Simulated assay, not measured.
Amino acid sequence: MSEAAAEPDPMSALVRLFKGLADPTRLRMIAAMVDRPRCGQDLAAEVGLSPATVSHHIRVLSDAGLLRETRQAPYTFYQLDLEQLQGAVKAVSSPKRVRELATAPAVGQDQRAVLRAFFDGPRLVALPAQRRKKEIVLEELLRRLPRRREYREPELNRFIEVVHPDYCTIRREWIVGGYMEREDGVYRLAPRGRAVLGG
């Protein structure tokens, strides 16, 4: 297995974890498992559900990485993995962390290092001179655009200006790099740009 394939996708894991929490019944079950491990029968009695329904919810919570299991035959006991829950909350605890998380599936560790070097929060500090670094930055800027079939030039300028004042240079670099095409003051994603955005 390649290193890239082995590396977990932080966004997918976090989405799975929060989906695991997005159910009132599962929240009640989690509350019952905070202080001590509970078996399926205990949980069924606690939340007033059938064992089969409890088993389904336990499977969802386990897949989300929220439970620790211990076996004491003939029972399996489950307890909330508080560290996992705290880690998920920490992952969305600041604007910077949310932005880093949002770029994680699309870019690798080296690309994120480039983005950290050239962005100060949401603002682009400078456009890199080195071609590959410039491409990484241009592709990140493209990902930050609202999705549109086409962009009129004044509208595109406003979007770019939020991130960097020199919107003329950014627009030109998108055209030169093959990310966008321009006709009569209207910009559309070129095949390379659509590939960056996954469509």
Rank of each mutant, 00 (worst) to 15 (best):
M1Q: 10
A4C: 09
A6I: 10
P8N: 06
P10T: 10
P10D: 08
A13D: 15
L14Q: 11
L17F: 03
F18S: 03
G20E: 02
L21P: 05
T25D: 11
R28T: 08
R28D: 06
M29V: 12
M29A: 09
A32C: 08
A32T: 04
D35V: 09
R38A: 03
Q41C: 04
D42Y: 09
V47Y: 02
L49P: 07
L49W: 06
S50Y: 04
A52F: 08
R59D: 11
L61I: 04
S62F: 03
L66G: 01
R71M: 06
Q72W: 04
P74M: 00
Y75N: 06
Y75Q: 10
Y75T: 06
Q79I: 14
L80K: 00
L80D: 01
Q86R: 14
Q86S: 10
G87K: 08
S94C: 13
R97E: 11
V98E: 01
R99K: 14
A104G: 04
A106P: 01
G108W: 02
D110H: 12
D110V: 14
D110L: 11
R123N: 13
L124I: 09
A126I: 05
A129P: 05
I136T: 15
R143S: 04
P146R: 02
P146A: 03
Y151R: 01
Y151I: 01
R158Y: 06
F159T: 09
F159P: 03
V163H: 10
D166Y: 10
Y167L: 08
I170M: 09
E173T: 05
E173Q: 14
I175Q: 05
I175N: 03
G177R: 13
G193E: 04
G198S: 14
G199P: 15
